[in-house]
């Protein structure tokens, strides 16, 4: 009996370090978030990803598992972000005929829109006396996570603040674009999708695929172009100004 207790104690130490623990917690929180979302009758102001992230944070806080350990364990799952980013090339290719006919508005909208997506937030934060670390962490807030992490490291910001900023930005962009489009009577899936991708990165793109495949393709396009463009101009600008 005492031996069993001893093994149980050992389990408390080894189990949190296992990848399966981290993956079970993540998937469970994800599906619970989806459940909760439909139970709340799909509120537009609170997407399932926000609910799921809060549930996951709650689980991690309650269990004897620290965040660093969790990150190491869940690496197997987050690695899939790589092939998933590559996979965005498929809807991009499928919608290429749309993109060909609209290349002019796309080329003209992208640079100012991507620069303002970073610029407005940085300007407001700067006016409110934010520290350089905070400014650097907020700068790539509209860029898809894998690229944004690279940018923030180059600007010496905080990766975790950036991830929080990505969540808030994605949720806020999804909400404001949905409402503004309804309010401004915009029904063009291409316009809504492109705006969702530029401002709301992966979270906006997920929402765009809910609207329809055309919106989804334009969101993937907006997201990838914003990522590539921001990765090029932001570090240059940062070193020039700083």
């Amino acid at each position: 009996m005492s031996e069993l207790l001893l093994r149980l104690e050992g389990l408390v130490h080894t189990l949190p370090q296992r990848p399966e623990t981290a993956i079970v917690l993540t998937l469970a929180a994800y599906f619970a978030g989806l459940r909760l979302f439909s139970w709340l009758r799909s509120p537009a102001w609170c997407p399932p990803i926000l609910l799921a992230a809060c549930l996951l944070a709650g689980l991690l806080a309650l269990l004897p598992l620290d965040y660093i350990e969790y990150r190491r364990g869940v690496g197997w799952l987050t690695w899939l972000l790589g092939p998933a980013t590559v996979a965005l090339g498929v809807p991009l290719y499928q919608q290429v005929h749309h993109i060909r006919t609209l290349w002019k508005p796309i080329v003209l909208t992208l640079p100012p829109a991507a620069m303002l997506a970073a610029g407005y937030a940085m300007g407001i934060a700067w006016l409110l006396d934010a520290t350089p670390t905070v400014l650097a962490s907020l700068a790539p807030k509209s860029v898809t996570a894998p690229i944004a992490m690279g940018i923030v490291e180059e600007l010496r910001g905080s990766v975790s603040l950036l991830m929080g900023a990505l969540l808030i930005t994605g949720v806020m962009a999804t909400l404001s674009i949905t409402l503004l489009a309804r309010w401004g009577n915009i029904h063009d899936q291409r316009v809504i999708g492109f705006a969702l991708g530029i401002n709301g990165h992966a979270i906006g793109t997920v929402r765009a695929f809910d609207i329809g495949p055309t919106a989804g393709a334009f969101a993937s396009l907006g997201m990838s172009l914003t990522g590539v463009f921001t990765a090029l101009w932001l570090p240059l600008m940062w070193h020039f100004v700083g």
Binding site: A22, T26, L27, A29, Y30, P48, I49, A52, A53, L56, A57, L60, A61, D66, Y67, Y70, R71, V74, L77, T78, L80, L81, A84, A87, L88, V90, P91, A145, M149, V159, S160, L161, M163, G164, L166, L167, A202, I203, T205, V206, F209, S220
Partner: peptide
């Protein structure tokens, strides 16, 4: 592509800690 939101979740919760 449908899983993208799930895949960024582990990074996102870092902010709470």
């Amino acid at each position: 592509i449908g899983m993208l939101a799930l895949l960024i979740m582990p990074g996102v919760v870092g902010i709470f800690f």
